[in-house]
Simulated assay, not measured.
Amino acid sequence: MTEEWTPGLVLHSPGGTRYHFDPGALCLELLTTGGPGAYARYEVLHRPEDLVQWLGESRLRLPADAVAVSTGQLAAARTLRDALWRLAAARAHGRPGSAADHAVLNEAAARPPLVPQIAPDGTAARPLPADGSQLVSTVARDAIALLTGPHADRVRECGAADCHLVFVDTSRPGRRRWCSMEHCGNRHKVRALRARRDQTEE
Rank of each mutant, 00 (worst) to 15 (best):
P120A: 06
A125P: 01
S13F: 10
A25R: 13
A100G: 04
A90D: 15
H151K: 07
H12V: 07
L51Q: 00
A140H: 04
R78C: 01
W54Y: 04
P150N: 03
R175L: 04
A40E: 15
G185W: 05
T200Q: 15
L51Y: 01
Y39M: 13
P113M: 05
T200K: 15
V139M: 03
N186R: 13
G174R: 11
L62D: 04
T33E: 13
R126Q: 06
H46T: 09
D198P: 00
A130M: 05
D153H: 12
R172K: 11
G37A: 15
A161N: 13
V104G: 05
Q53D: 14
D65T: 04
R86K: 08
A76I: 00
A140L: 09
L87G: 08
D101R: 11
A40D: 15
S171P: 01
H46V: 01
E201R: 15
L146S: 01
C184Q: 03
R197C: 05
S180P: 03
A40H: 09
I144E: 07
A124G: 14
V52I: 14
A68G: 03
P96R: 15
I144T: 02
F21L: 11
D65Q: 10
E201P: 00
V69H: 05
A38I: 12
A119Q: 08
L87R: 13
E182M: 08
G8A: 12
W178M: 11
A130G: 02
H164W: 15
L28V: 05
R95H: 07
R191C: 07
A99K: 14
A110Q: 03
G97K: 14
T6E: 11
H93N: 14
Q117L: 10
A83W: 04
A145Y: 01
M181E: 06
R197P: 01
V139D: 04
S180H: 09
E49Q: 09
K189I: 01
G132L: 07
E29H: 10
T138Q: 10
H188F: 06
P120Q: 04
P63R: 15
A40W: 15
L114M: 04
D142C: 10
V44F: 00
L74G: 05
T200L: 09
D22V: 09
D101E: 13
L128F: 02
L147S: 10
P129I: 06
G94V: 02
D169M: 06
W54F: 09
G94M: 07
A110V: 02
A143L: 04
